[in-house]
Each structure stands twice: as structure tokens, then as C-alpha cells.
Design a protein around this nucleic acid. Structure first.
Length: 832
RNA sequence: GCCGGGAUGGCGGAAUGGAAGACGCGACGGACUCAAAAUCCGUUGGGCGCAAGCCCGUGGGGGUUCGAGUCCCCCUCCCGGUACCA
């Protein structure tokens, strides 16, 4: 077909001498073929599986260019890996519970289910239009009873394993969303992740998952992800888990024999420098001690004032630390001396023991507080000569510390801890910053928590056989401080599974992060109605070989999913201990200096681009735009360039404007084949290392070389051009699949391009025959030679020294030094 | 504050310690056209020069090296995370 003129004319563009391809017709044709032939549907037959997963999206309805960028990357890999011969699972599903649907219901009266499902359909259409391919037989949606039945079932497994519990706790409350938030969902200066409203504290009965039981393993297993996950994500998780080692010990209250307070410190070596101790205002001991004392009212007022502060004020580091002596003393076990006991807002009840020993000499916060309240400061670590700071936190010999004197920090910590342990006062302990995961939400559009409360039997799980606890249809979605479900008596009123007596259902629903903590497992076995997934299928597909998503999930989703995987592994449901073997976080697409979002009004709708340029040109532009890990700025003119490129390739494929001849090969034919193989080598390597932008650049250079070849003396040789075009088409197949498939068919291949094998380059052809050798004199390039790529060192030096220009710089003398790096470079050093 | 990451033409970006600016966008000039669009060809970091060519140039300052955008030290600015975590 090559060189046969405008073959297959019906799909050619609308007239003009320089025909553009008819992207609309071509795209529809091939999208239908992939769907009808279920080209990317997979089973478990092959030993060479590859699980290629993109974070399943919230069905927002409209794909903007930011989404398109992300889906384009995943689709490139699905197609490339398929051509590499892997059995590639690329599923798609919907994170379809959550607030937007519920808010829409409140505002418009449309049922969240209808709202959600309409949008899912819309989004599926848009993915199809992009040419993104999936195994749609595995589609899941978190809001369907077929899915959330198993979310509830998994909750029951957690409950049975003692990993789910309910307790009253001060929680983050968003007054606008009228629901609680996990710590991880409080962002910035204490604002709601969703709506930006300042978060308040409230005491509520809430459900938690005991993720803290897994803190150490979640931390340890990050090691194994080194090199496979972006370093910054690994570090963010490490910091979030926040392990610190130290000691906790008890101190007697001087005025109350029998009463004591436990403190945690990472620096037991500094205990001799303790000059006061501080309790969190909410510490239970505070109320116990002050009851009936003259200062009772003053202390209560202070506690009240602190707890009323929003999280923002309380945690602001600019604010001066506020505190109050409560009139009691703690006895420092190391010295036997009493130190005054304070309450202060800088000590948090939620970390450690909620109480600290204060050592102003070695802790800046304590220093500040001591200064403000006129408390003594004792240094217990000798600062280095010339130290002019305040608290000294570095290493140095211990001083003023009796038996610790002279020891370095590490030895002193060990010695002090041992001292405490020998006396039974305290012990070495490890603290984590990580808190248990609060999963209750007082909202309607989420997975109901399958528990009932019975006056006789207390909290009772709904039997697995009664699942799912269906989310009932209701009339009033407005949040009122408790879940809208609480107002639905027919939902709430039930019977106790244990005693059969009247009982009440839990009305909270689960955080949507619970739904997304196991969806990747459901994709392995989506139709299973006996279990969330079979171990066999999960073990076949897991772990996810390549996970792709946004950096915004660096801690939340990725930590929870890791936690779920470990729990389910421990419970015997699967073998994998980590869900995502490799993680790729793509950068975001910005416009006007911000991430594209509806609320910012800076979204670029793809519709006009689809019409003018088609899906392939849009995709190719996204690949070309820049490194996929980096944020990128949308540029309206850019698609024009990739569209022009594709049309030039199309004209080469359709023989538009030239005639190919059956003739003997010339050096030009030899050379263009070499360029083809060199390009294949570059493109293959670039795709493997996610350098899509340079892969596209290589293809463009190849296209330019092909056009020069076609226009060159003697014109194109039919056989050479066909071989070169086949390679071009195969390389374009994962990137611009529609036009590539069309060209493949036009070239006379009767096969489906998508399942063709990615070609292998010929090493002998890919290597350069001649190289430009640069000759430097004193570091500056002074001459260049075309030399054979396998030139010897001696020859290369001889060529360099023969250069007249170089001789000029040598001024008749001998070079002091010659550094030879054949065939690319000869560097000559000569003293002036 | 602490922990990451970054700064290269008008713009997006490319460059295993070895020709800085590949590839593309934009701009300018030209061909084709009655004209325009499309397409094709050429130029395009700055300065000096008729030219051959020379000098300067990867945020700033030092250093290592025959050779630094790349490695080391210091600084400035920008982005992300985290923030009284004892």
C-alpha cells in the first residue's frame, strides 16, 4: 500500500492537496473495534501477568485536560506492556461514595445514586473517546450493594480481629460538612480538606480502625519500596508514621502520696535538667488534683479557654505558649527534688502520655516557657565552644548529671533508661505520631457501618449472612450533626442478632477511604458473590505491578491501602504484604498558576480539541509536554504541533505527494534503516523509564529523517519505506493508537496492531557508524572531525593533533597533557 | 523552623562529568496562491565582526576537574509536605 497514493480514500480528510487524516472517523472506528472485540479483557491463563492500575476516580462527570493527562499515561503503559507480551490487567472503577453527590442531592433533589450513575456513564464515554482501554468486565463502583456488601464484610473481619472499635474521642469536626474528619483530612492551618472551613474539636462517639497496631510494619515495609516508590512519598509516609524512641517514667506528686504522672521523653539523659513538668490541659490528672483546691476555678477557666481555641490557634507556632502552675509538684526521680507542675497549651493530650518533663536547657519550647514564667534553666549537655543559642539540642558530654556526667548523648540516654528500668520507675518506649484511623462519617452517601446497639448485648455486628446493610432511600439529606440516617426510624429500628430483642442500627457511614482501601483487590475477582475476592485470583494478580496516581494521596489513601493489605494478609485472605510494587505519581496540569478544578474555574474542556485535532493529537501532546512527574502548564497552542506531526506521518503512510519505487538499495536506504533502529532503541528505553516526552521527541526526529529520505535523491525505495513505516506505526501504537491502527491496516497488515509485538532493535544497526569528534584545547572546543565510531585512541589523538586550528593554539609547542575519550572527545592541555 | 524538590532561550523543555539549548511552540523571512488558510523551505540565546571566527551565557558566589547545567560548600528565590509530636 505504501506509495500507492491516497489509499483507502474514505478516511482521508476533507479535501485539500495536503490531506489531514479524518480523526473523527478513524477514532470511532477503532474505539468500536477494541470494545467489540474485547481486546483488553484478560483472564488468569498466562504466567506473565502485569497489573497496571490507575487510582480509581471519583466520578466527577466531566474529564478535563488534567484528567486526560493522567489517563493518557496509564493507557500508554497498558498498550505498551500488552505489546511487550504481558498479560496486562487494566481495570477501571469508581470511588462513587462521597460528599459531592450528597451535596447535589441537597441542592437539587436528585437522588445521589442517580446523580452518581449518570456521571459514571458520562465519564465512561469520555474515556472511550480518549481511546483509553480497560477490561470493562471488571468495572466496580463503591456505591453499589454488590461492592459495599464486601466493604461491610471486611469491616466485620476487622471487628472480629479487634481492629475496629468505638470510643468517645475529641474529633475534628467540620461545621460546614457537619461531619467528622480523620486527622489526615485536616489540611493547611486546620481546615477541612473538602471545603476549607476551619475545623473544630468535638467529643463524639466514633468508630476507629486500629492502624496504630500496624505502625511499625507500615514503617518497616517502606524499606522494601525504596527505589520502587518516589522517594518523597516514602519519606512523607515515614514522617507521618513518626516513630520516636525514648523512655517513659512515672513521677510522684509531692502533695498527693500515691498519685503519679507518667511522662514520655526522647531525652531521658537530660532528666537532671528538669526544672518543671507540664500536663496537657485535658489531662485527667488535672481535674483529679485541683478538685477542692483554692485554684480550682482559675485552672478550670484556663482549661476551658484552651479547649475552646480552634486547632489553628492552639497549634500556631507564632503564638506564645500559654500555661499556668496548678499548685502541685512532681518529684524528679533522678534528683528526688520536686518541680512545679504546669498545664500548658503546648502539650498535647493526643501524643505520648499527655505529660512531659520540661528541660529548658535542651528544648527550645521549654526554654521559651521557662523564660516567660521565670523558671530556672540547667544545662545538662555541654554546648560546643562559641555556642550562642538558647536551648542546645546537639551532642556533647553530659554535665550537672551525676552518674551521667561525661557521657555522650547516646550513651547517656541508654544509661538513664537503664537506671529507670532497674528501679521499676520507667522503661524504654517507642511512640508513634500516627493516630488510629477515624472512619465514622455523619453523612448519608457512604457505606453503612454494619453494627447494631442492643440494650442487652451492647455493640453487636450484623451477621455476615445479613449483608449488605442496604443504604435506604431517604427524603432529607441535610446534615444535622448526626447522619441523615438517624432520622430514618425504619432503618434504625432493628432486632438484636444475639437476643432478638429491639435494637438500633449504627447510623454513621464509613469514610470513603475505606472503600478505596481494597478496590484493587476486588478488580482481581469482581463478580465473586461468595467473598470479596478469592485468594487464588488475588494471589495471581497482586501486587499491583504499576500504580499510577496523584501525589495528593501520598499519605492518606496509600497508607490506608497498605494497612488493609497487611490486615487481610494476616487474616489469610491473600499473600501479598504490600499492595503496590511500583508507584508512579504524575504531576498536575496547571493553568493560570493553579491545578485545574471546577471550583477555580480554570478547567480546559477537551471537546474543542477533540473536534479540531482528535484524541491522538491530544494524547501525544500530553506525552510531549514535559516530564510526567512534573507539574505542567497547559498551553492552548501545543496540540497544533503534535497534530501537524501526526499528519506528516499520515502523508508518509498514504504516499501523499511522492512515489515509492522498486529499486536496489542505496546508502540512503541503509542509513534510514539505521535511524529507525536507533529510534526504536531510544523510544523503548524512554518508555521504560517514563520519559515519554523524549520518546515523542525521538519519534519526531525520526519523522523528520523519514521525510528527508523520501524527498532525497532517488526518492524512497518501496521496501525500505514499508519497513521504516511499520516501525514508526508500531512505536506510535501505544501513544496514538487510533491513527496508528488505521495506518497499520492501510499498510496491508491484516492483524490488530494492539496485540502485535513491540519490535526489537538490531544492535548492529542501532549503533552509530560515524561520530563527530570534538577537540578541545584548554577546555574550549577548537575543532571537530567526523570519525569512525570505533576509532582507536592513538588514531583519534593523531587526528586531533593534525588539526591546523589546534596547532595554532599549540603555538609550535608540545601539549602538556592529552586526554582521549574516543570517539567523542580529545582534550588537549597546554600551558599558556 | 524542619524534611523534600526545583531555578536552562520569548515559551514548554533536552542534555551516562565531554559540542548547552535536542524536539516542539511562538516569532521572523521566503516558496506556493488572485488572496488567505493549509503545506513546504530557511532563520531564531546574547554581544562583536563583511567574513572566517571570537567573546559571553544554565538563579548568585566560591571550589573540585583537562573539562561542570550535571559533583562539593555557601547564599537567594520558588514549589510541595509537615509543623509545639516532648
Amino acid at each position: 500500500m505504501i506509495g500507492a497514493g491516497r489509499a483507502g480514500g474514505t478516511l482521508l480528510g476533507p479535501g485539500g492537496d495536503m490531506a489531514n487524516y479524518d480523526h473523527a472517523a478513524i477514532e470511532e472506528k477503532w474505539q468500536a473495534r477494541w470494545a467489540d472485540e474485547r481486546t483488553f479483557y484478560v483472564d488468569e491463563a498466562s504466567p506473565d501477568k502485569f497489573y497496571n492500575l490507575q487510582m480509581y476516580p471519583y466520578p466527577s462527570g466531566d474529564l478535563h485536560m488534567g484528567h486526560i493527562r493522567n489517563y493518557s499515561y496509564t493507557d500508554l503503559l497498558t498498550r505498551y506492556l500488552t505489546m511487550m507480551g504481558h498479560n496486562v490487567l487494566a481495570p477501571m472503577g469508581w470511588d462513587s461514595f462521597g460528599l459531592p453527590a450528597e451535596n447535589a442531592a441537597i441542592n437539587t433533589g436528585i437522588h445521589p445514586r442517580e446523580f452518581t450513575e449518570t456521571r459514571i456513564e458520562k465519564m465512561k464515554q469520555q474515556l472511550r473517546r480518549l481511546g483509553a482501554v480497560y477490561d470493562w468486565s471488571r468495572e466496580v463502583a463503591a456505591h453499589t450493594p454488590e461492592y459495599y456488601r464486601w466493604t461491610q464484610w471486611l469491616f466485620l473481619q476487622f471487628w472480629d480481629a479487634g481492629l475496629a472499635y468505638k470510643k468517645q474521642a475529641p474529633v475534628n469536626w467540620c461545621p460546614s460538612c457537619q461531619t467528622v474528619l480523620a486527622n489526615e483530612q485536616v489540611v493547611g492551618d486546620g481546615e477541612c480538606e473538602r471545603c476549607g472551613t476551619p475545623v473544630e474539636k468535638r467529643d463524639l462517639d466514633q468508630w476507629f480502625f486500629k492502624i496504630t497496631d500496624y505502625a511499625q510494619r507500615l514503617l518497616d515495609d517502606l524499606e522494601g519500596l525504596r527505589g520502587q516508590w518516589p522517594e518523597r512519598v516514602r519519606i512523607m509516609q515515614e514522617n507521618w508514621i513518626g516513630r520516636s524512641e525514648g523512655a517513659s517514667f512515672r513521677m510522684e506528686i509531692a502533695e498527693r502520696p500515691g498519685a503519679s504522672v507518667e511522662v514520655f521523653t526522647t531525652r531521658p539523659d537530660t532528666s537532671f535538667g528538669m526544672t518543671f513538668a507540664v500536663l496537657a490541659p485535658e489531662h485527667p490528672l488535672v481535674e483529679e488534683l485541683i478538685a477542692g483546691t483554692p485554684q480550682e476555678q482559675e485552672v478550670r477557666d484556663f482549661v476551658h479557654r484552651v479547649t475552646l481555641q480552634t486547632e489553628i490557634d492552639r497549634l500556631s507556632t507564632e503564638k506564645e505558649k500559654e500555661g499556668l502552675a496548678i499548685g502541685f509538684h512532681a518529684v524528679n526521680p533522678f534528683t528526688g527534688q520536686p518541680v512545679p507542675l504546669f498545664i500548658a497549651d503546648y502539650v498535647l493530650m493526643t501524643y505520648g502520655t499527655g505529660a512531659i518533663m520540661a528541660v529548658p536547657g535542651q528544648d527550645q519550647r521549654d526554654w521559651d516557657f521557662a523564660r516567660k514564667h521565670g523558671l530556672p534553666i540547667i544545662r545538662t549537655v555541654q554546648p560546643p565552644e562559641g555556642f550562642d543559642g538558647e536551648a542546645y539540642t546537639g551532642d556533647g558530654p553530659a554535665i550537672n548529671s551525676e552518674f551521667l556526667d561525661g557521657l555522650g548523648v547516646e550513651e547517656a540516654v541508654a544509661a538513664a533508661t537503664e537506671w529507670l528500668e532497674e528501679r521499676g520507675i520507667g522503661e524504654a518506649t517507642v511512640q508513634f505520631r500516627l493516630r488510629d484511623w477515624l472512619i465514622s462519617r455523619q453523612r448519608y452517601w457512604g457505606c453503612p457501618i454494619p453494627m447494631v446497639t442492643c440494650p442487652e448485648d451492647g455493640l453487636v455486628p450484623v451477621p455476615a449472612s445479613d449483608l449488605p446493610v442496604l443504604l435506604p432511600d431517604i427524603e432529607d439529606y441535610r446534615p444535622k450533626g448526626q447522619s441523615p440516617l438517624a432520622a430514618e426510624e425504619h432503618f434504625v429500628a432493628t432486632t438484636c442478632p444475639v437476643c432478638g430483642g429491639p435494637a438500633r442500627r449504627e447510623t454513621d457511614t464509613m469514610d470513603t477511604f475505606v472503600d478505596s482501601s481494597w478496590y484493587f483487590l476486588r478488580f482481581a475477582d469482581p463478580a465473586n458473590d461468595q467473598a470479596p475476592f478469592s485468594r487464588e485470583k488475588a494471589d495471581y494478580w497482586m501486587p499491583v505491578d504499576q500504580y499510577i496516581g496523584g501525589i495528593e494521596h501520598a499519605v492518606l489513601h496509600l497508607l490506608y491501602a497498605r494497612f488493609f493489605t497487611k490486615v487481610l494478609g494476616d487474616l489469610g485472605f491473600l499473600s501479598a504484604s504490600e499492595p503496590f510494587a511500583r508507584l508512579f505519581t504524575q504531576g498536575m496540569l496547571t493553568k493560570d498558576g493553579a491545578k485545574m478544578s471546577k471550583s477555580k474555574g480554570n478547567v480546559v474542556a477537551p471537546d474543542a480539541y477533540y473536534e479540531s485535532y482528535g484524541a491522538d493529537a491530544i494524547r501525544l501532546y500530553h506525552y510531549f509536554l514535559g516530564p510526567p512527574t512534573d507539574d505542567a502548564v497547559w498551553n492552548d497552542d501545543g496540540v497544533e504541533g503534535t497534530y501537524r506531526f501526526l499528519n506528516r506521518v499520515w502523508r508518509l503512510a498514504t504516499g501523499d505527494g511522492f512515489e515509492a519505487a522498486d529499486r536496489d538499495p542505496t546508502p540512503a536506504d541503509d542509513e534510514i534503516l539505521r535511524v529507525a533502529h536507533r529510534t526504536l532503541q531510544r523510544v523503548s528505553g524512554d518508555i521504560e523509564r517514563f520519559s515519554f516526552n523524549t520518546a515523542v521527541a525521538a519519534l519526531m526526529e525520526y519523522g523528520n529523517a523519514l521525510r528527508a529520505y523520501v524527498a532525497g535523491d532517488g526518492g524512497p525505495r518501496r521496501e525500505t519505506l514499508a519497513a521504516c513505516m511499520d516501525m514508526m506505526i508500531l512505536m506510535l501504537a501505544p501513544m496514538t493508537p487510533h491513527v496508528a491502527h488505521e495506518m497499520w491496516e492501510l499498510a496491508g497488515h491484516g492483524t490488530m496492531l494492539a496485540t502485535e509485538r513491540w519490535p526489537q532493535w538490531d544492535e548492529d544497526l542501532a549503533v552509530l557508524e560515524t561520530v563527530t569528534m570534538v577537540v578541545q584545547v584548554n577546555g574550549k572546543v577548537r575543532d571537530r572531525f567526523e570519525v569512525s565510531a570505533d576509532i582507536s585512541e592513538d588514531e583519534a589523538v593523531a587526528v586531533a593533533l593534525s588539526s591546523e586550528k589546534v596547532q595554532g593554539y599549540l603555538g609550535g609547542g608540545e601539549p602538556d597533557r592529552v586526554i582521549a575519550r574516543p570517539p567523542k572527545l580529545i582534550s588537549i592541555v597546554v600551558s599558556s
